[in-house]
Amino acid sequence: MKANGLLSASQSALMAVVGRLMGIIDVPLRYLQRKTGQTGMAAFFLAPNMAIFTVFVLVPFVINFVYSLTGGSAIFLSERSFVGAEQYSEIFACGNYLDPNSCKQDVFWIAAGNTAAFVVLQVSLMIVAALITALILNREIIGRGFWRAVFFFPVLLSPVVTGLIWRWIFQRQGVLNGVMQGLGLEPHDWLTERNSAFFASIGVSIWAHVGFYTLILLAGLQAIPKDLYEAAQMDGTSRQRVFWRITLPLLMPNLIVVLVLALIKAVQIFDEAFVLTHGGPGTSTMYLVQYIYETGFASELRNPGLAAAASILMGAVLVVLTLVQMAASRRNEKKGAR
């Protein structure tokens, strides 16, 4: 009882302090509301966030766009010349759009092609892997909590760490070849052979991110009422039919979210793939963001304007993907799937 009394005394003291503080804050806020009205107050509270958004997103976007209209290798905008849409023309200067080698900026188109292939394969494999993992983790398996943690753990790793771990596994003298040799198999140049390097980058990316998407799908699976499965059981529904006719349609809102997030993330692939393969061998794992980075900052003949133009084009693709996602979500909501 004494402890309770002390607690309530400290609580009331705290409440008194909070009350006084609120009283002090209240005075200017009331004055502000009188002067600006309710709309003005809304703007006042939104202002900090809008300021952060402006400084870190809007202004860099505008500056980037301005860069894309300038030429030369100078970094400072004041030292750069205005060239209009020349950088975009440079990118689109191709003899045959189906043949990257016929383009003036062939590496851009090779990187774009690699990125497109990466997105298609990685996203589809990722969704299948996340769905299977979520379905398994949603069942009453022994050590379910442990397995959920195991699958989520890679998400917590820095992409650089992920890249380094897998480079250590895949390199010529790496763990994988060691195991293969131990089993009497021929070692393989995982990161220096075009196809295996490409698929290694896909595999590593899936490993690094599948836990996050699994979590989203798992939440969706758990939101499906158990009663529906029991009703299906009473209706004599086979397991396959339950999956295709009940689970999958009811999981669709989550699948759409996963699809779009995975697509956007895949288009932006850079860090773990760069650490793993440095874009090689040759340009076989060179993706768009790496192209932008190297064109703008890392190559000897750096061209920030061209890099900015490429990033604007990539941004346009991301905007299109986001719009598609919003349209799909709206359509799904209209259908009243849940």
Binding site: P225, D227, L228, E230, A231, Q233, M234, D235, G236, T237, R245, I246, P249, L250, K335, G336, A337, R338
Partner: peptide, 20 residues
């Protein structure tokens, strides 16, 4: 005998209608 083969039908408290 599985639920579906017992020849019974059940009405659930939550209705358990397939929402989609």
């Amino acid at each position: 005998v599985p639920a579906s083969d017992r020849g019974l039908a059940m009405v659930f408290q939550s209705y358990a209608l397939y929402p989609h």
